[in-house]
Design a binder for these strands. Structure first.
Lengths: 212, 212, 212, 212
DNA sequence: GATGAATGAGGATTCATTCAT
DNA sequence: GATGAATGAATCCTCATTCAT
């Protein structure tokens, strides 16, 4: 086949995959995870069921593609932020902003990807690595912050988990509760919380005590 | 029917429901969410499949019962803590400890209840109210803390969400990652984090800035 | 459950399996191997497709049941003949008669079982053991015949294969061509052939020669 | 179209058919009967799936072509042997040798053609005629042998079936069991068996008796 | 004539729910 | 009330065949 024809074919293929991806996302959004059947995806994409299998060998592969397609831009942005020469706090803020904004944009998919265990089961490895990657990234930035003396010394990994948790739940909140909470406010709150907690000046943490 | 007979019947009924509940939890734990079939529950409970339908009109009702039954003790403990006369920080710590410990104990069910969207979809209302209740409770305690001058002034509801997020992700971490992180350490970390954040003494929060 | 109830249940179950077996045989006979779909079996049996799965875990199990059910009586009769105290030639004759008669009776199934590689693939182990068993049985009888001095000395196993082949092809012929050849004649022919071959008295076998 | 162009076209067409035939044989050999999909044949042939349909109206036609192409050389050789002026026993030996050797060479196709009922179903008429032809050919030779006084008088057709059966099962054995039995030995055994059977000198065939 | 994407009927299997006993 | 067999819609996947380019 000529080079040109080949390139054209590749293009068409990737457009189809894209279209199927979008159909899958739509179905996901409308019916929830367990509602993602190949039939519905096909119908939504306006193609025959069998055609899906010309582009994805099976359902799992389709879901993985959806995952990848959704997560990749996030990952890229985050990497760019990570490797910039901003101070740690600005990096954190930027990353968290990225997350919130993406979620705002792709609500349905994110719900599916991050909250549905059926999917998470299938995408176990993808998910685990995704989360691990995120936490690791945060940990790197936190380590930088500690070095910059803007964060207290401590285990960057543990801190990263805590921050990740806070941010993630806020995402959850965004996803499930609707967002009456404006994004900028949200970001500021999370960062503030992360930095200073809620204790009044001079207050001391209680000793964590064994239950009675 | 005589009163006595009626009471006896109620008793039998509730024992059956209890038994079915336990079977459901076992199946949940062993097979995961998608593995919860009425067949398996019936077999585990040692009753005929049809009998399940004498106690629950359908599968959803059974799952709701499981949810309720699982969450109720938590709710009760939390209420008791809420209404005790401990200082706010102790209350928070106690509640969070309750959560972590419960999760440690009932891993399988909690995964199902809190992480599986298939379930969460079905149990949407239960879930929403559960979360709302938890956040509200935290908010109440935080308000108390503000009044006690141990927490900075602020919107208790927003703070509650942030804390909830931190705690919840730690639960997630417990649930999915296994718990190499010892519970006491975890609790102290969360509370510490909640109170003081990670900023070094004297460091200032960055102004949250619009993305260029 | 009472012993009685249990026995009754077993009875019903085995009657159902029997009915499904017969339906499968009918479908097999009418549509050939590749025509044996669970749908058709269910329809022929007059039950819902799902019901088949109450009696057989999957299609393979059903086919294996058909195989077993078909072959077992044959095996039993053959064993009885084998262990009787008849002279070798009579045993052979009796066994071959058994085969021909069974085949005459169960045409469709035998075609499926012995001639269809799709089935033979699935039932590989059953088949192999079946054939091996048959040949072994023949070999045993032939060894007996050699001892009785009615058969020439030689490798009983090789002789058994040859006899098996002759008989089997005659079965094939019966199965596919219809049987204008009366059974008694057939049996006599096979036995005669097996004993004396076709050479005229005094004729000598040619030396098997390499192809020029 | 000019005569030349037409002839050229015919040539191209038959080369394509040949190529497809070979691809089909390869697929057959590698994947077994049920693995012969038009996709695989096309891929193996290095042409597009649709192109197959320019040369064969449908799958059946392709399989028939495969059958024909495989069997034809056999038929030709057999005809040549039949019409040679060898004595009957040598003709038989030569034909049987041809069969065994072909089978040894084209294992996969033969398994498909002779043992798989899915195929045999499709190729019923081809098969029947093939077998009929083979038997007829054997019968002709046997008639010759009777005339030559090397075979006992009898129905040549019945004898032919018996011989065919013996030979065919040996082919089966070759095909499924692998061939620890060397071909020359096999041929000699079959011919010997065919000529003299297994009876010891002086032994008499039992009277074929009615079952009790 | 070649291509290969699109099609859609069909096949095996699962499972919530019903209902006769 | 208990039982568990029966049901059939739903689900994933396959593959011969068609047809626009």
């Amino acid at each position: 086949m000529s080079d040109l024809a080949e390139r054209r074919k590749d293009l068409v293929t990737s457009m189809m995959k894209e279209a199927i991806y979008e159909a899958a996302v739509d179905v996901l959004t409308e019916y929830g995870t367990n509602g993602v059947t190949m039939d519905r995806v096909a119908e939504q994409a306006g193609v025959a069921k069998g055609s899906l299998y010309n582009y994805f060998p099976n359902k799992l592969a389709l879901l993985q593609f959806v995952h990848e397609k959704t997560v990749e831009p996030l990952r890229e942005k985050a990497q760019r932020i990570l490797h910039s020469d901003l101070p740690a706090t600005h990096k954190l803020e930027a990353i968290i902003r990225t997350w919130f904004e993406s979620i705002d944009e792709h609500r349905g998919v994110f719900v599916f990807l991050f909250m549905d265990l059926t999917a998470r089961e299938l995408l176990k490895s993808e998910e685990a690595s995704g989360r691990a990657e995120a936490v690791e990234m945060l940990a790197t930035i936190i380590a930088q912050g500690i070095e910059e003396n803007v964060f207290r010394p401590g285990d960057p990994n543990r801190m990263a988990w805590l921050l990740y948790g806070t941010a993630k739940e806020m995402c959850d909140l965004q996803l499930t509760a609707g967002n009456e909470w404006p994004i900028e406010q949200l970001i500021r709150d999370v960062i503030d919380f992360f930095l200073h907690g809620v204790a009044a000046a001079g207050a001391r943490a209680p000793r964590a005590t064994k239950r009675h």
